[in-house]
């Protein structure tokens, strides 16, 4: 009895300790961000691996998500004779929810896990310690550029996801199912507000970008430096980022769209 309570207590202390370490780590990363802006090539290199190389999966998934939305929306709306509103359905669901959330989940799987694995392997092969030996701060040289790249990339990727998704919905709705072209766009323009809907979606993706990259670089930096430790850290990155995205999405939605 006492033993299991003690176990619970130890688990709780461990969890809070990690949370505290993550925040101290975040402070050091943010301190490391200004020097990265001076060494722009580091950032560009990371933007390539984190952002540009995630582009394909984002574009393809965005197109398919948009097409499915078009198909499902049409099947539901046609019962009410309201298939003209298909553009509104597709655009609002993508702009407000699916764009930031699905792009964030894909980003966590595609780029977040890669970041954790890369940093974790650097740690277990003692490259990070090696840098410290040479008086190079690994947080400034390795972590901060990756963090900043992820933070910048996800909003861009989410915006592209949304735009491609709307084109996908247009392709299915107007191209295949015969919804009126003019009604599709004009109803969309009448109902989607730039500040209220699109900017709130972008704000969501900025928050997700921050959290996902933070989790990814922290898990990598904090992993147990063995092959098993790196694999567990990578798994944790994907699980924790996905949960964080979905949980935060609920909170943000509740705050934004009342």
């Amino acid at each position: 009895m006492i033993g299991s309570i003690r176990k619970l207590g130890r688990w709780g202390l461990g969890a809070f300790e990690r949370l505290g370490r993550a925040h101290i780590f975040l402070y050091y990363i943010l301190m490391g961000v200004p020097p990265v802006l001076l060494r722009f090539s580091l950032l560009v290199q990371q933007m390539l691996s984190v952002g540009v190389l995630s582009l394909l999966i984002i574009v393809v998934s965005g197109f398919f998500v948009g097409m499915v939305l078009g198909l499902q929306g049409y099947n539901t709306l046609v019962d009410f004779g309201a298939e003209q509103s298909l553009g509104v359905v597709v655009a609002l669901s993508l702009v407000r929810e699916l764009g930031p959330v699905v792009a964030g989940l894909l980003f966590a799987g595609r780029a977040g896990s890669a970041l954790t694995a890369e940093i974790g392997l650097m740690k277990s092969t003692e490259q990070l310690s090696g840098m410290e030996m040479m008086a190079v701060d690994p947080i400034k040289r390795v972590i901060a550029p990756r963090f900043l790249a992820g933070f910048i990339s996800l909003p861009i990727l989410a915006t592209i996801f949304t735009a491609v998704g709307i084109v996908g919905g247009y392709f299915v709705g107007v191209g295949l199912l015969g919804v009126d072209d003019g009604a599709f766009w004009s109803q969309m323009q009448a109902k989607v507000d730039f500040g209220e809907d699109i900017m709130n979606g972008v704000i969501k993706s900025i928050v997700f970008g921050f959290v996902v990259t933070w989790i990814a670089v922290f898990e990598g930096y904090d992993c147990v430096p063995t092959s098993e430790g790196v694999s567990r850290a990578t798994t944790r990155t994907v699980v924790h980022s996905s949960l964080a995205i979905l949980g935060l999405d609920f909170v943000l939605t509740a705050l934004m769209f009342t």
Binding site: M47, G51, I156, A163, F194, D197
Partner: peptide
């Protein structure tokens, strides 16, 4: 490549602003 990526993002936002929203 990174420049194209950023430009694509801006183009997507521009499309959302002009074609999708009431702006």
């Amino acid at each position: 490549l990174v420049g194209l990526f950023v430009a694509l993002g801006i183009a997507a936002l521009f499309m959302l602003a002009m074609k999708v929203s009431n702006l």
